[in-house]
C-alpha cells in the first residue's frame, strides 16, 4: 500500500459533478485503485485534514482539485494540497475559471447574505441572524469558514501544474493523465491544458458554417434549430467559437449550443470579451447604408435585447479568471 503513489480528489466550491466524472471511469476505477493509493476524496473517503497535514510535502502524487475558491476553507485546502502534491491539477471548469460559483462575482457578499438569510421568500429569520466566522456558544467557540467577497480560481491562489477542463471533465481525460503517470510517459509542459486543443470547439463541430449574420437571438426552447447548420448562425448563443476545443463538440452535436465549459482558447485572456467581440461583429442590421450612428445603436440594441443575461451567458465558466473578475464595488 505505501508503495503506491497517492491520489487525491478534492472538491472546493463545486457541485460534485467532477466526482461523478471520476466514478464514470467505470471498471477502470479498479485499475486506478490497483496503481494508486486513493488517499483523499471527501465524498468517498473519510480521510481527515490532519491526515493530510501529517504527510510529507509532495507526498501526494496527483491531486485533482475541483471547485472554485469561495471560502477560506477552499483556500486553505488549496494551499495545503499544493504543498502536499507533486502534481496539482485544476480539474473541471470551476477550479480553472470559477464557473457557476463565480457568477456570484456579479453580485456582492452583502447581497448574497441578504438574499440567502434575510430576504428569501422561504426564510424564517426574525432576528436577522447572519452566519459568523466565530460564534460563542456555552460549549465553546464555533467556527465557520469565511465567505469571500470574490470567488477566485485555483490558479489565482496557488500554482497549478495542469488543467483538465470541462463541466464535468470527460472521464477519458482523467484516464489519460492517470495512465501517463502510471506508465511514466513524459507529461506536456507545465501549465498545459490536458486534452485541450489549440483551436475552438467549431473545429470539432460537424455543423455547416457560413459567414455569420445574426438578425435575432433565441433561447434554446424558442426554436428548433436546423441540425445541419451552425447554431450561432441560427441565433442560439453558442460559445463554441470562443471555447477551447477538446471536448469533441458534444453539446452542438445534439443541437445544444456550447456554453463554454472548456474555457477560453489558447492565447485568449477573456472568453466573454471575445464572445462579445464576435457577436458585435456579426449582427445583421440588413446593411448600413444611410443609417445614422444612433440608428445603428438602436438596431443593435433591438437585436441584443434577445440575450437575457449577457455577462452570465458569456462568462458562465470563466468569470473569476476573466480580466474584470467581478462586479466593481
Amino acid at each position: 500500500m505505501p508503495d503506491k503513489p497517492k491520489l487525491s480528489v478534492y472538491w472546493a466550491s463545486s457541485c460534485g459533478g467532477c466526482e461523478i466524472a471520476v466514478v464514470n471511469l467505470h471498471e477502470k476505477i479498479l485499475e486506478v485503485d490497483r496503481n494508486f493509493d486513493f488517499f483523499f476524496c471527501p465524498c468517498l473517503l473519510d480521510t481527515k485534514y490532519r491526515d493530510i497535514e501529517a504527510l510529507d510535502d509532495g507526498a501526494i502524487a496527483i491531486t485533482l482539485f475541483n471547485g472554485a475558491i469561495r471560502t477560506s476553507e477552499n483556500e486553505e485546502m488549496a494551499l495545503l494540497l499544493r504543498r502536499k502534491s507533486q502534481l496539482l491539477i485544476a480539474y473541471g471548469s470551476c477550479s480553472a475559471g470559477g464557473a457557476i460559483p463565480a457568477l456570484s462575482n456579479l453580485s456582492t457578499r452583502a447581497g448574497h447574505m441578504r438574499t440567502n438569510y434575510l430576504e428569501g421568500p422561504s426564510l424564517d429569520n426574525p432576528g436577522g441572524i447572519l452566519p459568523q466566522t466565530a460564534t460563542l456558544v456555552p460549549e465553546g467557540e464555533l467556527e465557520l469558514p469565511a465567505f469571500f467577497e470574490t470567488v477566485k480560481t485555483l490558479p489565482q491562489v496557488v500554482e497549478v501544474d495542469y488543467y483538465i477542463p470541462g463541466c464535468p471533465p470527460e472521464s477519458k481525460q482523467i484516464w489519460s493523465v492517470v495512465e501517463a503517470v502510471i506508465q511514466g510517459t513524459p507529461l506536456p509542459p507545465r501549465g498545459s491544458v490536458l486534452g485541450g486543443g489549440c483551436s475552438t470547439v467549431c473545429q470539432e463541430c460537424a455543423k455547416v458554417k457560413s459567414d455569420k449574420k445574426i438578425a435575432a437571438f433565441h433561447r434554446t426552447y424558442e426554436i428548433v434549430p436546423d441540425p445541419r447548420q451552425c447554431l450561432l448562425e441560427q441565433g442560439l448563443i453558442c460559445l463554441g467559437i470562443a471555447t477551447r476545443d477538446g471536448c469533441g463538440a458534444l453539446c452542438p452535436a445534439v443541437n445544444m449550443p456550447c456554453t463554454g465549459c472548456y474555457g477560453p482558447p489558447e492565447g485568449v485572456a477573456d472568453q466573454g470579451a471575445k464572445m462579445l467581440a464576435a457577436l458585435g461583429s456579426d449582427l445583421d442590421l440588413g446593411g448600413y447604408k444611410g443609417l445614422t450612428e444612433e440608428q445603428v445603436a438602436r438596431q443593435a440594441d433591438a437585436i441584443l435585447a434577445g440575450i437575457p443575461d449577457l455577462a452570465g451567458t458569456l462568462y458562465r465558466y470563466s468569470l473569476a479568471g476573466s480580466i474584470l473578475r467581478r462586479r466593481s464595488q
Binding site: 467549431c202 457560413s210 455569420k212 451552425c230 463554441g240 461583429s281 456579426d282
Partner: peptide, 13 residues
C-alpha cells in the same frame, strides 16, 4: 491556421 477553427465569424466582417 492552427488556432483558426473555420467558424467564419470573420467572414462577413
Amino acid at each position: 491556421e492552427l488556432a483558426c477553427s473555420g467558424c467564419r465569424v470573420c467572414g462577413s466582417v
